[in-house]
Design a protein around this nucleic acid. Structure first.
Lengths: 343, 343
DNA sequence: CCGGTTACTGTAACCGTTTACATTCTACAT
DNA sequence: ATGTAGAATGTAAACGGTTACAGTAACCGG
């Protein structure tokens, strides 16, 4: 039935040590006290045979996989690396394995079920899983934590995300108060994106605070996408719509904005100020260096993994963790400073 | 013995369908022909119970995990994302799961053994695993493919890496021939790094072709690290060593070089030309845009995963795959390329 | 000296599959 | 009828652990 590959099992160890398999198992999981003497025998036998317990067998028996999964829709983008970094830091610290799923592949099995049998819990990123799948998993008691996304209505599933609104307000306030901008474009993210929703709310609040009427012509869809954003701004320029600043929704879109402006000979920040959101790795290298909001994506990863592991261990968790963001003022807003961080 | 969580098993399906478990299993793995009628019964029962085979049990029985692992030493850096992207593309296409290990964590078990029981094969990145571990795995018939690293002497393990030397020669040739540089600094990577070794060979070959004597004072250790590289160049400037170009070893180091030069008021490329290696995402945004060599890191991922999966399936594989690299000329070398050529 | 703890250890069932081997059934030649 | 090959299905033993339950030895108080 099996491969030729010989592997030493718990029974081999038991035989050599002259004890029962149960004793070996108990030694491994220090479930009950062993005689000094027995313990020694077991140790010796294990060392002699170079024994490592087979995790798969363990999994089958305990119905735990000791792994968590992260479900993402795309791997690319500067978002992914820090998030994963945070997750891995935590999983390794807690002796969990990490499985990566992307929601695109996998047609044979429904990803929801796959996840549930391969892992003890899932970190679900934005809209990588549909609401029905999330509900299904949740209803079958499979631990989930949502990242940058709130749960389907009615379900109480922990969420880890960042503070979007207040930071956006402050960023737009900065544009208005420090740089006298009044015609500020806002670029939305993809349809239904929650980060975008809150950022827009923040944007509107800043306008309203300063009695600047909301102008729907200045709110466009950049899709958190470099090319889309570039296109949209180009169109705006051609239409000769007046604007003196762009809050690009995220850094990725800001790159497109910068490019569109440059190609149309519009100076940044002289004529138009540009700001983003996320504080990607490349922000300081853009031309001009991009003022933005720092999103602690690695911490999102850490917290999501921590929450999930707590759930798996039946410890209490927060319903929602909102990680603080902070302004990172560089030069694209009009400031002319050596990078100065505000609060 | 078990969690309360009820899960429907192959036996439930067998009972409902009125056949034996073997039949269900055979249906699932289409191992032998079933009567049209039996098949239908099985289908119905499976659908009714919403049955999904338990992969863990399957693993135990077949001694295959249907997962491959990738072992890395660090997650950060622009290297990681495209590599992983390539790997995931391939694993999903082939219905494999992907496990991520970093060599830092994991103290409880030796990572080598862990990997071998959790996965059907491992992609080992640069020096994330010691030679002994690699040898151990290889000797116990665990499939491995090495990435950006050649096998320990004597072992025949497939390697996927990129063409370093010829590309480096061409890049340095470009500096010499097109831009008349003769005092070209080379920044080595970390101690023992093979990419660095070949890049240096390429550098030397270009010098030699043009009868430029090799000057050891111009070869320094930048460690493929932004800060290290910056430091090293600053020192060089302070010592008033003459140089008119820097081949930074990789893009990461090039960033540090650019920074050091800028802070010392040395114009790039006017006074000193700078080139890197890798073609990271942010290269076009640097100031000036960085001329470099494009390393097809995503393809490295794809090829490594493909090779590994072939090994797992006992299909023949290449001993070594050397992926082609190509020059990407932007402006930091002295060229004045207006068009943003490469994505 | 005996019953009752306590502390350790052993026996064997179980986790949910796969698969070697056995069995049954069908069709067809003899 | 009978024998037989071949196809479809069933039976039960693995895979390598965990753990409920049972057993045993040592110790203690009465």
């Amino acid at each position: 039935m099996k491969s030729k590959k010989y592997s030493t099992t718990i029974r081999d160890v038991a035989d050599l040590a002259g004890v029962s398999v149960a004793t070996i198992s108990r030694y491994l999981n220090n479930k009950s006290l062993l005689t000094e003497e027995t313990a020694k025998k077991v140790q010796t036998a294990m060392a002699e045979l170079n024994y490592t317990p087979n995790p798969i067998a363990r999994n089958l028996s305990t119905n735990r996989t000791n792994a968590i999964g992260v479900v993402m829709n795309e791997i690319g983008g500067d978002f992914f690396t820090p998030l994963l970094e945070g997750i891995i830091e935590t999983t390794e610290k807690n002796d969990f394995n990490l499985l990566i799923f992307t929601s695109t592949g996998r047609n044979r099995y429904n990803p929801a079920m796959l996840g549930s049998m391969y892992t003890d819990g899932l970190i679900v990123f934005i809209d990588s899983l549909g609401d029905e799948d999330i509900a299904y998993l949740h209803n079958s008691d499979h631990p989930i934590v949502l990242v940058h996304k709130s749960p389907p209505t009615g379900l109480q599933i922990p969420v880890v995300t960042i503070e979007n609104k207040r930071a956006s307000t402050r960023l737009v306030n900065h544009l208005i108060e420090k740089h006298n901008r009044r015609n500020i474009v806002f670029l939305r993210g993809p349809e239904g994106n929650e980060d975008s929703f809150w950022r827009e709310l923040g944007y509107r609040e800043a306008l309203s605070t300063h009695s600047i009427p909301f102008d729907p012509r200045l709110v466009l869809v950049g899709g958190f996408d470099r090319f889309k954003a570039k296109e949209v701004i180009e169109k705006l320029v051609q239409e000769k719509t007046q604007f003196d600043a762009v809050f690009a929704g995220d850094d990725e879109a800001a790159i497109g904005v910068l490019q569109a402006l440059k190609e149309n000979g519009i100076s940044v920040p002289g004529k138009v100020a540009v700001v983003g959101f996320d504080d990607q790795r490349l922000c300081p290298f853009l031309n001009p260096p991009l003022s933005t909001i720092h999103a602690p994506t690695d911490l999102v990863g850490v917290n999501a993994a921590e929450q999930l592991i707590k759930m798996i261990r039946n410890e209490p968790v927060e319903d929602i963790i909102l990680l603080p963001t902070k302004l990172v003022i560089r030069e694209s807003c009009g400031c002319n400073s050596v990078p100065e961080n505000i609060e």
